[in-house]
């Protein structure tokens, strides 16, 4: 299997800027595109594009539950609604509305949950979703992505625009580490093999991809060859790539800015348990709520750093020796 060439650096644009620009591009090319917001327009920069497409952006006010119903109404009349709010409002708060009015009714609604996990920073536990991927994965036939850089985010937004159904993209709002060249494609149901290796495979998503790459550097210094996968498509998940990783390394570590229950770690474990069971450890939040703090502090607190990944690998390898 060939690896994807990476293009490192800091993203030039914040993810929110990417969101606003992509929505503007889609909306200007297609009058049926509608962006729905719940009083977080200036948080995601759509306030800057509103004057250009005033009839295609609706600020619903602080009414997330109602906003899901409005999205369903737009879908019923042939429009293509993109719904944005913070991840915990999009999922935890409005889950039954999203489930019944949008998904169970088999409508066409795109949901963008921002401020993924610890990146909610000073908004703290009330605003910090470690559960959104799990909730979204429970919805039959929903597609669930976590974007790891701006190239990917833009590509995924364009992709879900063209595909009928319930789609969820989890993202941070600020600058991400640049990973991909602007021509890279991100098909549904696929992962990106970023580095090959034979001793362990680190399967990560979102901000944890950067940590996984760092961990693989640290492990290389110890003579351990770590495979790194960016598993941006969490549902459906790339079963073939997971089996390749399991077969080659016999040891999988998942790394997610999310509860270890329900999200990427669960998805990988469920897939491999049924196809190619191997040793596994899930890096992620365990039995904890969110709290205020800087991202770096929170990553350390919840065990979401390259060093935590390295330690998990070393513990396992020592155990087996």
């Amino acid at each position: 299997m060939s690896t994807t060439p990476l293009q490192f650096g800091l993203d030039e644009k914040e993810m929110r800027q990417v969101y606003a620009e992509t929505i503007l591009e889609l909306a200007q090319n297609d009058p049926s595109v509608i962006a729905l917001e719940a009083d977080l327009m200036s948080s995601i920069s759509t306030n800057k594009i509103q004057p250009l497409i005033p009839n295609q952006i609706i600020n619903c006010g602080i009414m997330e539950a109602h906003m899901m119903g409005v999205a369903a109404g737009f879908s019923l009349t042939g429009k293509i609604p993109f719904v944005h709010t913070f991840a915990q409002f999009a999922t935890r708060r409005a889950f039954d509305q999203l489930f019944v009015s949008c998904a169970y009714a088999r409508l066409n609604v795109k949901i963008i949950g921002s401020d993924a996990g610890v990146t909610a920073e000073h908004n703290g536990g009330t605003h910090m979703a470690f559960e959104d991927l799990g909730l979204m994965r429970l919805i039959p036939n929903a597609t669930v992505y976590e974007a790891s850089d701006s190239t990917m985010f833009k590509a995924l937004l364009k992709q879900i625009y063209g595909e009928y159904g319930i789609h969820y993209i989890r993202t941070i709002r600020k600058k991400a580490k640049r990973l991909y060249s602007s021509s890279e494609q991100f098909p549904k149901g696929k992962g990106k093999l970023l580095r090959d290796g034979k001793d362990v495979a680190i399967v990560a998503s979102g901000i944890m991809v950067e940590e996984a790459l760092k961990a693989s550097d640290l492990l290389a210094n110890k003579g351990i060859e770590a495979m790194v996968i960016d598993m941006y498509s969490i549902k459906p998940i790339d079963q073939n790539l997971l089996i390749y990783a399991a077969e080659k390394t016999g040891f999988i570590i998942t790394a997610e800015n999310h509860n270890v229950i329900g999200g990427l770690g669960s998805a990988v474990a469920e897939t491999l348990m049924e196809t190619y069971p191997v040793s596994m450890y899930r890096i992620g939040v365990r039995e904890q709520f969110g709290q205020v703090g800087k991202t770096d502090y929170l990553k350390e607190f919840y065990g979401l750093t390259a060093e935590h990944i390295v330690k998990a690998v070393m513990d396992k390898l020592e155990e087996t020796e």
């Binding site: 539950a65 119903g69 409005v70 999205a71 369903a72 109404g73 737009f74 019944v100 009015s101």
Partner: peptide
């Protein structure tokens, strides 16, 4: 026209339809 039963939701959808139209 619309799947309903979880109370409170249908009126939001009706409002969404009316705004879209």
């Amino acid at each position: 026209e619309m799947t309903t039963g979880s109370l409170g939701q249908g009126i939001s959808v009706a409002v969404g339809i009316a705004l879209s139209q």
